[in-house]
Design a protein around this nucleic acid. Sequence first.
RNA 1: GGCGGCGUAUCCGAAUUGGCACAGGAAGCGGACUUAAAAUCCGCCGACCCCCCGGGGUUUGUGGGUUCGAAUCCCACCGCCGCCACCA
Length: 802
Amino acid sequence: MSDRKYNPHDIETKWQQVWADAHLYHATEDAGKPKKYVLEMFPYPSGDIHMGHVRNYTIGDVVARQAVMKGYSVLHPIGWDAFGLPAENAAIKSNSHPAKWTYANIETQAASFKRMGFSYDWDRTVKSCDPEYYRWGQYIFLKFWERGLVERKSSPVNWCPDCATVLANEQVVGDGVCWRCKSHVQKRELEQWYFKITDYAQELLDDLDKLPGWPERVKTMQANWIGRSEGAEVEFELCDVAGEPSGEKITVFTTRPDTLFGCTFFLLAPEHPRVKEFVAGTQYEADVMAVVEKASRETAVERQLGEREKNGAFTGRYVINPVNGEKVPVWVSDYVLMDYGTGAVMAVPSGDQRDFEFARKYGLAIPPVVVADDDPLLAELSGATDRVMADVPWDEAFNGDGVMVQSAQFTGMRGGKASEGMQAVTAWLAERGAGDASINFRLRDWLISRQRYWGNPIPAVHCPTCGLVPVPEADLPVVLPMDIDITKGETLADHPEFYETTCPKCGGAAKRETDTMDTFTCSSWYYMRYCDARNDAMPFEKDKVDYWMPVDQYIGGIEHAILHLLYSRFFTKVLRDLGMLSFDEPFTNLLTQGMVKKDGETMSKSKGNVVAPEEMIAKFGADTLRAYILFMAPPDKDLEWSYEGVEGMYRWLSRVWRFVTETTEEVHAGCGVAASGDAAAKTLHREMHRVTGKVTDDIERFQFNTAIAAMMELTNAAYDYRNAVAAGSRDLALIKEVAERLTLMLAPFAPHMCEELWRETFGVEGSVHRASWPEFDASAAVADELELAVQVNGKVRGKVTV
RNA sequence: GGCGGCGUAUCCGAAUUGGCACAGGAAGCGGACUUAAAAUCCGCCGACCCCCCGGGGUUUGUGGGUUCGAAUCCCACCGCCGCCACCA
């Protein structure tokens, strides 16, 4: 018989040990059961866990535990995203080594996860900084390379001065700051390694439709990031210095070829490679170079701060508009981006607000070409195929749908995005070899090289004779050397014993690549490794991945809406094309959990509003913390921490504990009747079935807060029954069933307490976490009598009891 | 500027998707038990207006609309949050 008082601490540590010894949560591929892969984003080992971790991993744990009880074969693993800069910074601060800091934190976090009672299969743990893991990251890199998806090229890249490394576009956030250290990012021209994610841009966009289990806003963010634009490429013929046609073509991308007749000037980005050549030694050189230099001085931040004053200068050159043979001047302007489209733009000031502002500032013509249906100008210009008006009477550009005017044979057609006129102009250009329909993406290739030590070494060799040579698979892993003094700011480039090597191709002296890979390469496939975590012959067996994958439920923070989730989708598609697996998308259902706040702000040490999980465990136990963090709000919403709230949760768990232990004593003592069937018993019986249905349903919908609320209602109904019926007359079968059902349904939330009640109080053989989830009888949940409201004109006018 | 989300009692939140608005918890108040306290158990618990003291009416950020019926759908506005942003 258990203690009368609920004492979480002894119970929790006791069962944690029992579960660990029995490998209770070991996952096996069981062909006789449906599978469920429940995964939470693996943590970065920066110190001990915080409340955000508690919330994230508790959600996953409840889902995983209930799935086991419902008869699924469940995979619920954990690991660590262990490479990365914070480890280097911490090592510098503490005059230590990144590995030491990282492994120590992993130990701390692992202990905390165990103390929280999470049901992980610890035999599948992955640490991305272990050679047994990262060697397969290198292997995958080589496979990508074989497939032509690895590229080393020179281009303007994002440089974080504080992290002293380059960053991927996705890692530049907010107003042009580093995702990790929030420093302002600079632009530098550097040669770097890329994964050609743009090869998959269309599929990454299209397949968002295959993800009905993802939040709409995450899909919208990814679609915006990929940024598909339909339009046309148009070729303009360049004129020479004397203004005569040179025969050379210069291409632009436009989403509005229907406005081509309104093009009155042509723009180049300040970084455009032709700019210097065009103005060298001319009277325009000084003005143009002033614009170029001003733009280059501006940081990425300033250029990304939305709309600003547009600056420009005439280059002295002209291009010929292919639709009307008009010579239009070529300008340089700082609002044209070199890394989108072709770095050159046809300007149509009447149809584009930016071009409009630029034209007004520099006195360039603004002829109308697409006019709104309700614009009086339409009547005035109706039927005019030639340009009779060179300047619109408008205050701003018009970019909507309307009627084409002053556009030769296209005059009178519908103009606008995806319009008849747009198609007609594109077709006309294509016939004459002056353009064609085209699609442009905002997505850029993924810059994966980092000039940092604590990461996965890129398996490549620079040979003076053979060029870039991949490290042969047999030579993997390229081991990250441990004898490095990070406190002196050393990187692999400071260690000749690392980089001095021989070329795998010709055998001559060569230099090993000293950059490491972006940590997001490590996190792009770890969930596949869990399926076959100890394989030392390949990253994973196809059969095992095909059994467990895709992840049925993925849970993590919204901050990965683009970064990690996009990269993982990309990896999955490439690995599929490499024949290593056979599905298209890695995560079928995605839950993005909200943040845990205190006093309306995110918890942080600098704000001094951190509530440490260990402090709450010490006070109330892990079960109370788990149940509380799920009870306070739906999982996708932010949650405001309240100390009074935790005490309330502890009170309720104690109340359940008392009910179960006391009624079990009554049952054992035979103090009551076998079955009573009176009104009070009927009410409790009905409530028990109603709540079973509600809890089952709510966990499926991730409404953990209402699932717990329903169990509280059942607890209240159970106490009502005890108050209504005297001891000795109580229905023993009923109160026993209520106690058992409560224990089973609460087990995923408060696993230790329920295990204690199940095995010690009830005396059942085997774990409650292997027991079957309670069935419910929908008809038993329906009341015999029902009060119906009678509405007349939507107002309650009476009530009838049926 | 664009896109997306949100707004319900003192606070956190229900309302399974158009059908009795506010379940559950917290806070607060009262009672039982106790010499007393804690713990526990029981009960009460939004506001405003009207009232023949039985009760009735209004109220889901604001204002409209659709509907027999709206917290829920539509339009406009206000407020808060997030993401993107000179992407041609």
